[in-house]
Computed example of a mutant assay.
Amino acid sequence: MAQRNTWQRDRVRAALSGSPGFVSAQDLHASLRDDNTGIGLATVYRTLASLAASGEADQLQSPEGEAIYRACSSEGHHHHLICRSCGTTVEIQATDVETWAQRTAAAHGFTRAEHVVDIFGLCAACSEAAR
């Protein structure tokens, strides 16, 4: 079922697009609250889930286990390199991972296998700053 385009959905989408990296629903809600939008946390959660389901947003789990979101700039299946310090995110294609995932699934009798691979580390700038 298609989502109705409301002003709240547009504001959440705009706030997500304006975020430099992945952001939690609570952090996004805080920025919307600071702008006095009146948009509730439940609306932010529902909208982010809908944007992720439609492919307009990437959703993944942070190393701490929290769902985080980012406006998606690529179509189709892809992976991310994510800086644990500043949140810089790079979308990557990972052909070797795709091959490994399909081969591993098939070796165990699995079909229609799907996977999620995201790599967390420190970007070059944060690594240099840490030295």
Rank of each mutant, 00 (worst) to 15 (best):
C83M: 13
T95A: 08
R33Y: 10
R131S: 15
A67F: 01
T43A: 15
G18S: 07
I119L: 15
W7F: 06
A49I: 06
D118E: 06
T43F: 02
R103L: 13
Q61W: 15
R13G: 03
L48I: 03
L28G: 04
A2P: 01
C86S: 09
G76I: 12
E64C: 04
A52G: 06
A105N: 00
R4W: 14
A129Y: 06
T104L: 10
D10P: 00
H79F: 02
A14I: 02
A113I: 09
R103E: 07
L16V: 10
D10E: 10
E128C: 07
H115A: 02
E98G: 05
S62Q: 03
I68K: 02
A25S: 13
D35N: 06
H77V: 14
A106Q: 14
E56T: 07
R46H: 14
A49E: 08
L32D: 11
D118A: 01
G55K: 01
A124V: 02
A106D: 00
D27A: 11
S62W: 04
S54P: 08
S50T: 14
Q61A: 15
L16I: 10
W7C: 03
W100H: 03
P20S: 11
S73V: 10
S62G: 00
F22Y: 14
E56M: 05
S19E: 00
G18Q: 01
G38D: 13
V44C: 04
E66K: 00
L41N: 05
E56P: 01
L16H: 05
R11E: 14
E98V: 08
E75A: 05
C83E: 12
F120C: 04
A105E: 01
A125S: 14
A130N: 10
Q26G: 05
C86E: 03
R46D: 14
G21Q: 01
G65K: 08
V117A: 14
S74R: 09
H77Y: 09
A106S: 06
P63E: 10
H79D: 12
Y69E: 00
T89R: 12
F22W: 01
A53N: 08
A14Q: 06
A106I: 08
H29C: 04
A107V: 03
R131L: 05
A53S: 11
A15N: 11
G121T: 08
F110K: 13
